[in-house]
Design a protein around this nucleic acid. Structure first.
Length: 380
DNA sequence: TACACGTGGAT
DNA sequence: TATCCAAGTGT
């Protein structure tokens, strides 16, 4: 961490570029004193998430939880409600844990050093460095996707990123100047986000263009090398269960794993390579296929769910078959009007939207009906 | 060390 | 339409 130099020609040209081209964002106004709470919340939201997506969530979150104390004293359910649709829900859980820790163990004041920040829930090497530099102006170099791209190109590093991460971290720290750490951190990320972009980088307006090895060698478009994982395809049934009052059966997912802690309708899915199976209904009843299905793509799974529906009569609701199911899955019936009180994933929002549509007795794959509808609408 | 973990926008 | 990929962390 003592590797950084006084201002180098590279870092001063980057700072000069930032003074002219840097962006003001809701959590970081240039020239204003940073608020560590805003910096922290924004950094967590921005993990693997675009600025454009984060901005409306950030405003809503700050409206609801304006201080770290208000967050620490909240219910986790309300935190998840604010996070619904943002993805990577473990972030919300860790954010909440972290707020409680900071209020309880640090008197509500953020620690300022990389080492202390790194101990906190949900704060890894990137976020520890970003809070330390952005909020407290300490010369800790951040290494995120932007910085990896800028540095890998600057030094024409052609090995897969996973293998050269440590080398990149070292070079990032060497570039970090002792002065203006917060501005420098903002600058290198803004550069990656707006100039040294993955596709169609604007090398002509880059402050590093006379030093960039990849530009000299014509390899900018091939760097960095990122090895990606294959998505597994899964499919299965989703069970839409209504009672006599038109309430729908929902349940809460476990605290870990996929969509942890969110609300869902019961569903299951298997790897399609095993072959498509007939659905195993969770209890006996008048199940019908709705002719509806939802598709959703996660980071690592390509999912398709067929929606099956049944209505449980008051008598059936009291049957041991249904009671066993209810005990096993741990859910309740709620009215559709009350869905807003539960955190649903985007996947489940798709299911709700699909079930709100009028029934269509057609083969979805034909697509011809949709075109007809559009035509009729535009004709009016 | 790999892999799990969401989502929406750009191309 | 398919693929990429965005201010990563936890295990």
């Amino acid at each position: 961490m003592t590797d950084q130099t006084d201002t180098t020609p590279l870092s001063s040209s980057l700072l000069a570029w930032y003074d002219k081209n840097g962006r003001d964002l809701p959590w970081r106004v240039r020239g204003a004193h940073p608020n560590p709470y805003l910096v922290w919340v924004s950094e967590i939201m921005l993990q693997q998430t675009t600025v454009q997506t984060v901005i409306p969530y950030f405003y809503r979150f700050m409206d609801k939880f304006p201080t770290i104390e208000s967050l620490a004293n909240a219910d986790i359910e309300d935190v998840l409600l604010m996070w619904q649709g943002l993805g990577y829900y473990t972030r919300a859980r860790k954010l909440y844990e972290c707020a409680k820790t900071i209020v309880a163990d640090y008197g509500g004041k953020f620690p300022e050093t990389y080492a202390e920040l790194l101990k906190l829930p949900g704060i890894g090497p990137y976020t520890a460095a970003s809070i330390s530099s952005l909020a407290f102006d300490k010369p800790e170099a951040v290494v995120d996707g932007n910085v990896i791209r800028v540095i890998a190109r600057l030094y024409s590093m052609t090995e897969p990123v996973d293998q050269i991460k440590q080398e990149i971290v070292k070079k990032a720290q060497q570039l970090m100047p002792k002065e203006r750490a917060a501005d420098y951190t903002s600058a290198i990320m803004d550069l990656g986000a707006t100039v040294c972009t993955p596709k169609n980088p604007k090398c002509k307006s880059c402050p590093f263009n006379s030093d960039c090895c990849a530009l000299k060698e014509g390899t900018v478009d091939e760097i960095p090398i990122i090895v990606k994982l294959e998505k597994v395809k899964k499919s299965g049934p989703l069970f839409w269960i209504e009672n006599e009052r038109g309430e729908v059966f929902i349940r809460k997912r476990t605290e870990t794993g996929l969509l942890s802690g969110l609300t869902e309708f019961p569903w299951s899915a298997d790897d399609v390579s095993v072959g498509k199976k007939e659905p195993e209904f969770p209890f006996a009843g008048g199940w019908t296929f709705t002719n509806k299905s939802v598709k959703h793509v996660f980071t690592h799974i390509q999912l398709s769910l067929d929606i099956y529906k049944t209505e449980v009569s008051g008598k059936e609701e009291k049957s041991s078959d249904f009671k066993d199911f209810k005990t096993k899955t741990g859910g309740i019936f709620v009215s559709k009007e009350n869905f807003k009180d539960y955190p649903f994933s985007t996947l489940m929002k798709k299911v709700i939207a699909e079930m709100e549509k009028p029934d269509v007795k057609k083969n979805k794959k034909s697509g011809s009906n949709k075109k007809t509808e559009n035509k009729q609408l535009s004709d009016f």
